[in-house]
Design a protein around this nucleic acid. Structure first.
Length: 307
DNA sequence: CTGGTCTCCTGATCGC
DNA sequence: TGCGATCAGGAGACCA
């Protein structure tokens, strides 16, 4: 389940394979994973009554064929492959998505929905000088590719996201949570509030900050919000440094697993002892997600009412 | 508008 | 050993 640290690890490992290279061939093997101007290209919208008579036409350029990659940019859990011409392809990995360069030694397996052949650099300059094949694989298909034809369209799309969680400051978090009566866990998972946190790191950050997952978001005190912002940054930064969490099948852009799961203190540990107090970790459902926390270390207490 | 619930999807796991 | 039931979960649609 790729969250910010996993996407950042993928971005970093793919950079040397893609930046400065030209996409010579792009193939869409399953059309409905590509979203162009807000609609799936494959013809059948998932929304009720959204069945369209004709598939939306797409062009190879939507998948950046013929374009030269200028940079890979991450915002929250999304990554954009930005081309020199201004086009961009945003990759959303959803639950089970993977984006990686084909190793040649292992078969890519089923559920590959898009494939790019990337030319070698014009001048040989180092060890990565061969043609590369980039694959988008996504068994559960909660992921998607979104095509944008200019930087302004990409910015508009990303405008719907909250501030990036990796650099979230206490006052920015306060602004994002102001007035919210949703449980803090639900608020942190809402990508329009804060971009990048998913179910693993939200539980880890709440534990580190000593905040109960069901506390109303708008009721956190200033000190709690600062602690929470610092916990979010710290948890994510450590996970990035560890190459992300491989809980099931996550792998980076070169197929390598991460080790951040070794540092998880609550995720996946319901019923086990708290690493801080030794008490039994509770497991509940919050925001429709499995939620693990320590009832002793994470008090459901917010700011005092003004006298 | 806001927050809660439903839905999509497949692989892993569990109990009989 | 086989197989149906259950669970996992990101995020948009939907609804009260």
């Amino acid at each position: 389940m790729p969250e910010l640290p996993e996407v950042e690890s993928i971005r970093r490992t793919l950079e040397p394979h893609l930046v400065g290279r030209r996409v010579v061939l792009a193939t869409l093997l399953r059309r409905d994973v590509l979203i162009v101007r807000g609609d799936p290209a494959g013809g059948f919208s998932r929304s009720r009554g959204g069945r369209r008579a004709r598939p939306r036409p797409t062009t190879p350029a939507d998948l950046l064929e013929g374009a030269t990659v200028s940079r890979l940019v991450r915002r929250g859990k999304q990554m954009a492959i930005v081309a020199e011409c201004g086009r961009a392809l945003v990759v959303q990995l959803g639950m089970s998505g993977q984006l990686f360069v084909e190793s040649g030694t292992e078969p890519a397996g089923p559920h590959v929905h898009a494939r790019w052949v990337v030319a070698p650099p014009p001048v040989t300059e180092g060890w990565i000088n061969e043609q590369r094949v980039l694959l988008f694989r996504d068994p559960r298909r909660f992921g998607a590719l979104r095509a944008f034809s200019c930087p302004a369209d990409l910015e508009t799309h990303w405008g719907g996201l909250g501030p990036d969680a990796l650099g979230i400051a206490g006052d920015a978090l306060a602004a994002a949570l102001k007035g919210s009566r949703a449980p803090i866990k639900a608020a942190l998972l809402d990508q329009s509030v804060l971009a990048g946190v998913g179910n693993i790191y939200v539980d880890e950050a709440l534990f580190e900050a000593g905040v109960h997952p069901l506390l109303a978001a708008g009721r956190l005190g200033a000190e709690q919000r600062d602690r929470l912002a610092a916990a979010v940054r710290g948890v994510l930064a450590r996970a990035v440094a560890a190459g992300g969490s491989t809980v099931r099948d996550y792998a980076d852009g070169e197929g390598r697993r991460g080790t951040a799961q070794e540092g998880h203190r609550v995720y996946g540990r319901g019923g086990e002892p708290c690493v801080a107090c030794g008490g039994k970790l509770a497991q509940i459902t919050a925001a429709q997600r499995t939620t693990v926390f320590c009832p002793r270390c994470q008090r459901r207490t917010g700011a005092r009412k003004s006298p």
